[in-house]
Design a protein around this nucleic acid. Structure first.
Lengths: 334, 334
DNA sequence: CTGAAAGCGCTTACAG
DNA sequence: CTGAAAGCGCTTACAG
């Protein structure tokens, strides 16, 4: 197979042109050993001129490190995960690492398995994993954590001995409950993502500290699910004056459903979400929500992973604070 | 540095346990040479049991291929690019390649340079590049295209001898112009992204086929810019009944600005965008827009890049069709 | 159907 | 301050 672009230079080539050994070239580039200044300058000039970049595979084979991390998210086209990715990438870049972002297509086992193999094949030094299904790790993930460093982002898996970086989900539920209670609401409903996720269970649990018998409808994380779950509540004749949606997409779906049924928001029904995705302030009415700092989540996850790689000690888990963002979708109970 | 996780198995280990040579193990895994069925079965069982995954660097050093592609986008947290990434990843995965998605932080030269080095260090086999600044390629990019395959996505750079995958931007402008003309509008304004981008120039050019003296305000691609450019037009006392925004974020900003100035949409002013991002149908009023097939753009770009890698022949550029999506933000001229 | 050996491009002890 | 050489884990001609 003929490649149309020119050949790559090797360290051998640089050494030959500079009239030194590859050892000296290597040390000049790494700075791990003193090199005569004039020699070093000559080598660097040649490197610059030819545009030489050391082959990563050669380097990796000896050093054992690729200086690339992987981030697996359920769906990269969702801005929520995009924002985590952005924070993670920013921090990885700052520390001289590349970040490989990949979708698992909502935790498709085959796709996950492929990405886990990147760690196992040493193509990446570690993995940031964002699950979307449940808290019970699959066999592949369980095996993986024995072979390389994995940090869980946005979810916890109690049975897996790895650190996680999550928001204070219990507190998010509490804040939502307190907010609706303060507005005089008494019979809210809750619409949430998959029941198998600890984040959902905790948000519900926190919310029930204010409304201990609130009915919960579990579904998935998208707008359609929010619409459908709300429609179910209406169809069942449940009498509610407010909705706690466990994320903003669900909340947007709830708002659309309520409007389609002639309910005005917040005059007749209040809706509060969780996340504060970009969309939250762009919809009408603006969505009251509990903000998660998703960029920070990505950033902290990278910090944990790199500290682990560099010290050899497994870092502790992190819980990030959340805060109420009041907009127009919640109001005093009618 | 002590790693807390166990050692990795090598092909040597598998060979020793199976009582064969590494040659036989290698051929069993690659299928490039016949192996006695019983021997192959025994080897595969051991591979399975120990969870052996061949080291990617060892493989790459001989084969020259990493089977990883890179996609550089200005900002991964924007759903527009997330959607391109999703399409690209889907196709890469289908053909057995991994995809490394990275933000260039709006074409920050240092960040770009880092990602270009991934190609030059042979860590990835090729690059999909989405520029955000202008059509004049930097020195790094110019050098890169001589060293590895690069496919431009969403933008063209006429001075660079590489294939591109773009939407029919001229046609997008034409459709927008025809739509507004059909509704009786006569004096529209145009708000667009950077003037240095061919996509913007073409959209404006297409639009001017209906309104040859339309005033154009150039800015950047975000909601704030759309707001500001529209405010500028109002402040300058320009009398317009419609706005052609060269992307949906600009359109959303325009809508917000017009509302803040007491204009109702579409009764007083019509607004039409380009892209059809998720947000377009979620805002109120729903945004009339020219849809680009962003997932397809990513998919086709990967197809081009892999065909190039596998045949050695540079593929031709692709122009994808666009279509009008009518929602509520455009109406008959007052 | 199988194996010994060369070699991909680096890094790094070892020796000077 | 410098270099020859071993070796990282694979793949693949070469030889049987």
């Amino acid at each position: 197979m003929d490649r149309s672009w020119g050949r790559q230079w090797t360290m051998q080539d640089i050494a030959r042109v500079a009239g030194v050994s590859v050892t000296t070239v290597s040390h000049t580039l790494s700075g791990k050993r003193a090199v005569r200044p004039e020699t070093a300058a000559r080598i660097m000039r040649i490197v610059e001129e030819l545009g030489y970049v050391p082959d990563s595979a050669g380097r990796r084979l000896k050093s054992g490190r690729s200086r690339i991390l992987a981030l697996a998210v359920p769906d990269i086209s969702q801005s929520y995960f995009g924002s985590i990715a952005r924070g993670a990438e920013e921090e990885a870049d700052r520390r001289g690492y590349g970040l490989l972002v990949s979708s698992t297509a909502d935790s498709d086992p085959r796709r996950e398995s492929r990405y886990f193999s990147l760690v196992r094949a040493r193509a990446v030094d570690g993995l940031l994993y964002t699950g979307s299904r449940d808290m019970i790790p699959g066999q592949d993930l369980t095996r993986l954590v024995n072979e390389g460093p994995v940090v869980l982002v946005d979810e916890q898996m109690p049975t897996l001995p790895v650190p996680s970086v999550v928001s204070d989900n219990l507190r998010a539920g509490q804040i939502a409950g307190e907010h609706l209670a303060a507005l005089g609401h008494t019979r809210p409903i809750v619409i949430a993502g998959p029941q198998g996720l600890k984040s959902q269970v905790e948000r519900v649990q926190g919310f029930r500290q204010s409304f201990n018998n609130a009915i919960v409808f579990y579904g998935s994380f998208d707008i359609e699910s929010g619409y459908r779950l709300t429609a179910d509540a209406l169809a069942n004749g449940i009498d509610f004056t407010s909705v706690f949606a466990a994320n903003d997409s669900l909340a947007v779906g709830a708002v659309r459903c309520l409007r389609d049924h002639g309910k005005s928001i917040p005059a007749e029904v209040s809706v509060i979400g969780v996340d504060d995705i970009e969309l939250a302030e762009l919809v009408t009415p603006g969505l009251t929500t509990i903000r998660q700092n998703t960029e920070e989540m990505g950033k902290v996850a990278v910090t944990s992973l790199l500290d682990w790689l560099e010290t050899g000690e497994m870092p502790t888990s992190t819980v990030l604070p959340v805060e109420l963002v009041e907009r127009e979708s919640t109001g005093v109970c009618r």
